[in-house]
Amino acid sequence: MSGVFMIEQNLKELEERSIFILREAKSKFKNVAALWSMGKDSTTMLALARKAFLGKVPFPVIHIDNGIDFPETYKFRDDLTKKWNLDLIVAKSEIKPEISGFSCCGSNKTEALKKIMKEYKFDALIVSIRRDEHGIRAKERVFSARDKNFRWNYKNQAAELWDDYSSKIDTAGHVRVHPLLDWNEIDIWRYIKKERIPVNPLYFSRNGFRYRSLGCTHCTVPVKSNAKTIDDIIKELKNTDTEERAGREQDKEKEYVMQKLRAFGYM
């Protein structure tokens, strides 16, 4: 079999599994929402949801907005919300003086999300994380319970055999649903190309730099790159040796920061 055919086949399998997971979430929970950062992964997830539910996204999408996202990101959000008729909830997150890394994402974003989850009584939250992003994210289940304080009991996760996902939750807790866990960074870009999914322009190179992973203006830095098109990005990823989240300050601060962030409810 040719390489091109195998890539197509692989994307089809990933797509099928994600559609299955999204439908599973919708049929097992009463009140589902999704996080949308306007990044490539959560936008791809929305494109998959449109396929799973025959053209519409049947759940609200939450943007945790600390007010310091890039202007391009806000424009992208508003354009796509209109185009795809999304039910957008903006969760305003407070800016505290110490606005980087653990404190930025940990306290600010998680607190804003807690408030929204409580207000709308969501029992499931779709989060577009992938295993290849980070060693700690690789330990996740597809359905992953959080208690009412958002805590992740990573030392005793539920059994998850085949596609038998556990939807049991403690009172006032919720379940994180991870439909993109099996995707790699390069799969996402190949799928974006194949499906012509709109992407934030910040991913493409300007003056020799591009954003490979998008956070807010304070915790993300661009990486050196001349990739101006999706094809350039795919080519670049085939040859790169650096980590996708190398431009994310919070991941590097101390050992186990990601573990601690996630244990306390971070995405």
Binding site: G3, M6, G135, K139, Y154, Q157, Y256
Partner: peptide
């Protein structure tokens, strides 16, 4: 592979994880 603090300090794998290796396509 073992990314949890408890896994490294304790020298054991607590939970399952995955990583991709490519060999001959």
């Amino acid at each position: 592979l073992d990314s949890f603090e408890e896994e490294r300090e304790g020298g054991l794998t607590i939970d399952t994880t995955r990583a991709e290796a490519s060999y001959k396509g």
